[in-house]
Design a protein around this nucleic acid. Structure first.
Length: 315
DNA sequence: CGTTGGCCCTGATCGC
DNA sequence: TGCGATCAGGGCCAAC
């Protein structure tokens, strides 16, 4: 399940190969992978063919590649954008099972490949970018870029203060220098919901999915359904610190991988799964106290926690 | 508006 | 051996 670290690994792998590359051909094997695209597959293909990708940017679990505006392509006629600020981007979300694979042009097409981009890079030559997605919760789309309200960079990977419309409602992630911690603190105080639900709410804080939510809550010794309004500012800050630590550590280890659901752009698996303390550890002893980790259903997901270390605290 | 529950989607795995 | 049931969950949207 690609979350922030896995998506960042993809971004880092993809950026050198596609920034500055020209899309020569687009093949749509399954139009369901374009469900976020506002238009038919033909429109997607036509608008991307010949386009240049300027960068690979990430906010939370979303990736986007701004389409470069050059002398031959839709030059803005007035205003600040006249010198090539991109106006739209190729947006990607990996969903549950999405992968972006960087391949040689003649490489075999993997099963469950939904989209294929033949690209040409000035240094790296002819390459292929394959979008593989078993469960089709992920998708790609062309989406207009808009200004960020805080004028900070839209995401990691570009300094431009632009963000796709589809991503505008997604909060900045906790590794973003412009992350609004005060806003999160205020919202958590006012909300009447559990802390894990809040951690998974991408409009409050982005990039966290089920795995890193469970890992962060274990590290902070918090129960998943602890009411957010009962948490002190200090406790929330500590939790946020654990979130950042867990995300950074996973990033250092190349992301989490399970039965090859996730592979990075070269097809190699990440290995954060060796470092999990809570997620998937039900039946195993807690590393702090030895009590067996349990798994409960919550929000149609599994929640893994230590019944001793992570007791619900009184309000 | 805040909050919550349900739905989408399919390959792998399991049990009978 | 074959086949149906079960499982995984991010994002979005209807409904209260």
């Amino acid at each position: 399940m690609p979350e922030l670290p896995e998506v960042e690994v993809v971004r880092r792998g993809l950026a050198p190969a596609v920034a500055g590359a020209r899309i020569e051909r687009v093949t749509v094997l399954d139009a369901r992978s374009l469900k976020r695209h506002d238009g038919p597959a033909e429109d997607f293909i036509e608008r991307l063919s010949g386009a240049h990708l300027a960068a690979v940017v990430r906010r939370g679990k979303f990736l986007w590649m701004p389409l470069a505006v050059g002398e031959t392509g839709g030059m803005a006629s007035a205003g600040r954008g006249a010198f090539g600020d991109p106006v739209e981007a190729l947006v990607a979300h990996l969903g549950m099972s999405g992968q972006v694979l960087l391949r040689r042009r003649d490489a075999e097409v993997a099963p469950l490949t939904r989209l294929i981009f033949d690209v040409a890079h000035p240094e790296h030559g002819a390459l292929r970018v394959d979008f593989v997605d078993q469960r089709i919760f992920g998708s790609m789309a062309i989406d207009p870029l808009q200004a960020t309200p805080d004028a900070a960079a839209g995401g990691h990977g570009s300094t431009l203060p632009l963000v796709p419309g589809q991503v505008a409602h997604i909060a900045r992630d906790p590794l973003d220098p412009a992350f609004d911690e005060a806003r999160l603190l205020a919202t958590l105080r006012a909300r009447r919901t559990g802390i894990k639900r809040a951690l998974l709410d991408q409009t409050l804080i982005s990039g966290i999915g089920n795995i890193y939510a469970d890992e962060s809550l274990w590290a902070a010794r918090l129960h998943y359904d602890q009411p957010t309004g009962s948490l002190s500012t200090r406790t929330v800050r500590e939790l946020l610190g654990e979130v950042r630590t867990v995300l950074r550590r996973a990033l250092d280890e190349g992301g989490t991988s399970f039965d090859a659901q996730y592979v990075n752009v070269n097809g190699a698996s990440g290995y954060f799964s060796h470092s999990l303390r809570a997620y998937g550890q039900h039946g195993m002893p807690c590393e702090r106290c030895g009590r067996l980790i349990v798994r409960e259903q919550f929000m149609n997901r599994g929640s893994h926690f230590c019944p001793v270390c992570q007791r619900r605290r009184p309000a």
